[in-house]
Simulated assay, not measured.
Amino acid sequence: MRLGLAQMDVIWEEPLSNMDKCQYFINLATNNKVELILFPEMVLTGFTMNIEKLILSEKDIINWFKDKAIENKINIGFGYAIRVGAKGNNKFAIISKEGILLTNYSKIHPFSYGGEDEKYYRGEEICFCNIESKIITPFICYDLRFPEIFQIASKTSKFIAVAANWPKSRQDHWLTLLKARAIENQCFIAGVNRIGIGDKIEYGGASVIINPQGEVLNEISSKEELIITEIDFNLVDEIRDSFSLKKDRRENLYKKEYEKSFIN
């Protein structure tokens, strides 16, 4: 699969301007024969806690990206936020090149350190989608710090995408955790992060595609660009067959000890 990561400078709380930028990246990806393009978390607004700024409906956002997918014959994954009553939903959707909504994930772990848990609902399930017989799971930003959901996802998926607004000040954590998730799950991990300034926070990009051995397949940068890499899903099978890490996991024991920890 030819994969593109849109490392974008998101304009703060300006959805229509960010749609124009998304259009540019989609055109660029199409011209470079990208099969799947991924955008960062909350790509139309930035990581805003101002729920009243979420002016576009979910239908409007999904339909706009559907039209672009069909027009350009490209699969598109994108992070977005919508208002639902008094709070918001932080989501990541993947749309097929035929304009079919393949999955629409809600962030399981809102970022409490930044007050997101007070402004956004928590998601309640892991999502999967199928693109040409390739199973993909999306997660969002802070989810990266919770390895349990990656272990569950990688039982089915060979490729996990993490869309983020991850601050430059914690970039070492970002890269270390992405590599760890790839190695311990023996799958491809793609982390797509924004750049620029949003609400006085600096974002450094460092979007990466990492193979199941923990090797970064692209040059790490902090500039606005489309990162393109070919990924071979067969590599996941080869590595899992030659080093059967998952077979040695003792999940019944982990569950028992976890339950015991609540009793004690």
Rank of each mutant, 00 (worst) to 15 (best):
A93S: 15
F78D: 08
T229I: 02
V236L: 11
E132M: 03
N165V: 04
E132I: 00
F150R: 09
M19V: 07
A180N: 13
V216P: 03
Y203T: 00
L28S: 13
Y80Q: 02
E52Y: 10
F39K: 07
K97M: 02
K87I: 05
S106V: 15
L253R: 01
Q213F: 01
K53E: 15
S133V: 00
I140D: 04
M1D: 09
V216W: 03
Y120W: 04
N72S: 06
I231F: 09
F150C: 06
A182N: 11
N89D: 11
I220G: 05
K200T: 00
D172Q: 04
L3S: 12
G85H: 10
F243C: 04
D232V: 10
S106I: 15
I26L: 08
M8G: 07
V10T: 14
N211W: 08
K119Q: 07
R122I: 00
G114I: 14
E238Y: 13
K247H: 02
K107H: 01
W166H: 03
V236Y: 11
V216G: 03
L144I: 11
V43P: 04
V43D: 06
E125G: 01
P147H: 13
F262R: 07
C129M: 11
K155V: 01
I62L: 12
E219P: 03
F233C: 11
L226K: 03
E35G: 12
E13D: 15
S207M: 04
K59I: 13
L226C: 05
N264D: 10
T48K: 12
A180T: 15
K255E: 10
N218G: 04
I37D: 05
L177H: 02
G79Q: 06
F243R: 11
H109F: 14
T45R: 12
T103V: 15
L235F: 04
L178S: 11
I51K: 09
N32D: 13
A81D: 09
N218C: 10
F146I: 06
S221G: 08
K68W: 01
R170D: 13
P15L: 11
F78I: 14
C141W: 00
Y105V: 06
D117Q: 02
I26S: 06
L175M: 05
A163H: 08
I160Y: 01
D199H: 15
E58V: 00
K73L: 01
F78T: 11
I152R: 02
V84N: 09
F111K: 13
Q151M: 12
L3P: 08
I220C: 08
F146W: 08
S222A: 10
I126E: 00
T103G: 13
P110R: 06
K200M: 00
G114P: 01
M19Q: 12
V192G: 09
T176G: 07
M42G: 05
I108M: 07
D60R: 12
R181T: 05
D9R: 05
E184L: 12
I76K: 05
L178T: 07
N193M: 08
N75Y: 06
P212D: 09
E13Y: 14
Y105G: 11
R145D: 04
S17N: 15
K97C: 01
A163S: 15
S154Q: 10
S17H: 13
D199Q: 13
I55S: 15
I160D: 02
